[in-house]
Design a binder for these strands. Structure first.
Lengths: 151, 151
DNA sequence: CGAGTAATGTTGGGTATACCAACATTGGAT
DNA sequence: ATCCAATGTTGGTATACCCAACATTACTCG
């Protein structure tokens, strides 16, 4: 982290990419800490959330929905399965696929992570008023949507 | 990257931390590509910018100004020195320190990276009007400032 | 039907960013 | 003079992201 005082070069201070990175890095730190304390990491939450919202899925689908590479889905699902948060079984209708299912433990864990994340949003957006939060979210959503389409 | 269509879980889609991360990831990709094409990476730009704006500095100062860990400064300065973009010499007034100096080649390279970065800002903020860009920058600056102080 | 193409899970690798702990050397402070 | 702090350095960790190759299975279309 930028240590307190430290004069940041103006070039950086005013670049949108730098600002976004700073805030993102902070958010990242918060999320990493919060999740680590709950024994999870980013990929875990993303996968659990996708399973909760879309139901049992193949690993490839999970990857597409969460933006995680197929190969990284394998590892993360291994970890989740080892903790009984998720169950992996072959898909009888397509033998190439596995069906990943959220277990009751997984649901519980997800709800826990939800709380962690909610707390982080508040910390992250702390200095902003409700209106400003809405503004920021709207602007970021537009950027995210635009870049998701246009790549 | 999130592949085009793919339904992102609502939980993620609406979290500020996720949005920021998405945009940051995109910005990151752009910067990485742009810099890679110029034979540089993020740390290099940050260090060169700090040297340009504050003059010859010790590695520790560079680290504080750019938010880069001391140990990572070592590696990055090694790389920059190997390309003659920077010169490392012992500080006669404090034998613990090195003085890192920007070379003419380094200045040239920095100006090149400046251009790359300027192009990226435009791409990144593409969908926003001038006013909206100002808004976004202001909001992000407040968040960054707040978290820089409060940690 | 058969042949080629595409999707899936998996392994194994690579990179950038961000940290942390330890160490020897040197400065500075009390 | 002694203790403490700063500095450069080495080496290690974790996360996120991304790529290439491979065997297996499904699908398509001549």
């Amino acid at each position: 982290m930028m240590t307190a005082d430290a004069q940041t070069p103006a070039r950086l201070r005013h670049a949108a990419s730098w600002l976004i990175n700073q805030v993102s890095a902070h958010s990242h730190r918060l999320v990493a800490e919060g999740f680590a304390a709950a024994g999870a990491r980013g990929y875990h939450f993303r996968l659990l959330a996708a399973l909760d919202e879309y139901g049992p899925s193949s690993q490839a689908d999970l990857g597409r929905r969460t933006g995680i590479d197929r190969s990284d889905v394998v590892a993360a699902v291994n970890e989740l399965a080892a903790k009984n948060l998720v169950e992996r079984s072959p898909d009888p209708s397509d033998r190439r696929r596995n069906v990943i299912t959220l277990t009751p433990d997984g649901s519980r864990h997800l709800r826990e992570l939800d709380k962690v994340l909610a707390g982080i949003q508040d910390d992250l957006l702390g200095p902003l008023t409700e209106d400003e939060r809405t503004q920021l979210t709207a602007l970021l959503t537009r950027l995210a949507d635009h870049h998701r389409r246009a790549g």
